[in-house]
Design a protein around this nucleic acid. Structure first.
Lengths: 117, 117, 117, 117
DNA sequence: GTGGTCTAGACCACT
DNA sequence: GTGGTCTAGACCACC
């Protein structure tokens, strides 16, 4: 499992994003069991508390639910996951364009710049 | 003077970026005096210490220099400023595309998505 | 822990020098945890912000690194620390001899003077 | 006239030291007129106020005296100047050795180190 | 007036 | 508990 975490940013929201995407694209099916907190912590090299916090955050947002003694499971309705991912995409794109403008690039240059990628 | 600071991100680097752009685009000419620490603090609505920190960071990077009792001045060589701004553009673009990929968008979709803007 | 700070000079660089020496002579081994910002502040009788500033300076120079929520650690490569200490020695010696010359002492007198110590 | 000022240290005391040495070694004889404030300021590239402050400091210490409308003059008794310079030499030497010890050099190494110069 | 440094105290995110 | 950031306010030296 690849986590590609950016250590300069808070870990917890990064884990949330990654898990939301996994659910949204169907890498984890509805009602399927997710990796245990310990497994994620070990494979991602982070503190179990941080993973726990992420899972709780996703539960609060309605993407997953927990069953005492057996683990965390994907919610049967993945609409929330899709919405969350779409919001993230929009938000990050918005911030990106704002940043580019702040850095002195006009829309034309940005478009040209992006196309080079 | 418009500072348009994002309160969700640390202020100090935001000031650095803004000042670097101003120098890079020639809004502040070489050897010209910059706004005083206190002036920036007042107009941006932040603490003088935060501005001081930003100025020191820019000094460390070779964009500006200080004269005791007189103020901060733009370095005669603005190459560093240009490089810094270009690096920022590249870095932010890189992070943006990585984020998009992490969020499940393939290059084609990203391009389409960007063009809508 | 003895800090022997000279209150006539800025504290921050003095802390940097002291810490660099500790690392250089092996009083703090590579990847070992340093005293926390608060501990140093308490034992040295200075403000935590001042210690924080020193640690950041040493991080910038590549002697140490920080782990959020866990502490500051000595870099695995202590070459930089050794270099920094050697540079300090050379610089201070150079300034000392220049000062002596400025004060009217010729090399012969300086040597004689130093040997008396 | 060579002033060799270190811009990282306060200008005023540096000027005092330099002038004291000039008087002590007889470069300026007793009751001789010193360079005017303006001349010093111009040749040293500093603010006239700073020079004025240095002259006043030296007057307070009894090295020189001023005559309204005609300038500053070396005191007939240069004992004070000699004492001041000797004190400076002792003080700087003391600080130098303390610094070397702080940087991890034992007395033996310091001696060896100094002799190489 | 200016920059340079420090203290005090607060809040946040992460472990 | 830890580091990271910021605010508020003070004092100094220099111009």
């Amino acid at each position: 499992m690849e986590w590609t975490l950016d250590k300069n940013r808070p870990i917890s929201p990064q884990l949330c994003e990654k898990l939301a995407v996994m659910i949204s694209v169907g890498e984890c099916k509805p009602n399927e069991r997710l990796m245990s907190v310990r497994e994620v912590a070990l494979s991602a090299g982070v503190n179990p508390n941080t993973v726990q916090k992420s899972y709780e955050e996703l539960e609060r947002k309605g993407l997953i639910y927990s069953v005492r003694g057996s683990g965390w499971f994907v919610n049967s309705d993945i609409t929330v996951a899709n919405d969350l991912v779409n919001d993230l995409i929009k938000e990050k794109t918005k911030v990106f364009f704002e940043d580019m403008v702040k850095l002195g690039l006009d829309p034309g240059k940005i478009k040209k710049y992006v196309e080079e990628w």
